[in-house]
Design a protein around this nucleic acid. Structure first.
Length: 103
DNA sequence: CAAGGGGCTGTCA
DNA sequence: TTGACAGCCCCTT
């Protein structure tokens, strides 16, 4: 197994452990698996998940508390909808990270 | 090996 | 508050 495969798995495990109603930024996820500068990689890992994945990828947003999809896109709506169902409040397209960031 | 492009970020005007 | 920019660094061509 390559090291990038291992990193991918670390990211999956961490994302899978984010509690409902909480969120992390891409950079945070990267830091917590030991690679602080790999925020963009985290994004591409989540992007390449199968459609039927059980992973709560929607609990990962950018550092500004905004969804990183173009507003109005299908993916954007799905992510926002799932988060709202879990109790995450959006104000003008933004999440208050002070309140909802995981720990 | 080079080039292009990402679900990013922090800084600054 | 927004937008532009420059770092960042991995993966695919």
């Amino acid at each position: 197994m390559s090291s990038s495969e291992a990193l991918k798995e670390s990211i999956w495990l961490l994302v899978a452990s984010i509690p409902s109603g909480k969120v992390l930024s891409y950079g945070e996820v990267a830091s917590r698996v030991g690679f602080p500068k790999h925020a963009r990689y985290v994004g591409s890992v989540l992007k390449n998940l199968p459609n039927n994945t059980e992973l709560p990828w929607h609990r990962v947003v950018n550092a500004q508390g905004r969804v990183s999809f173009s507003i109005g896109s299908a993916a954007y709506r799905i992510q926002v909808q799932r988060l709202e169902v879990e109790g995450v409040k959006f104000k003008a397209e933004r999440i208050d990270m002070k309140v909802h960031a995981w720990r």
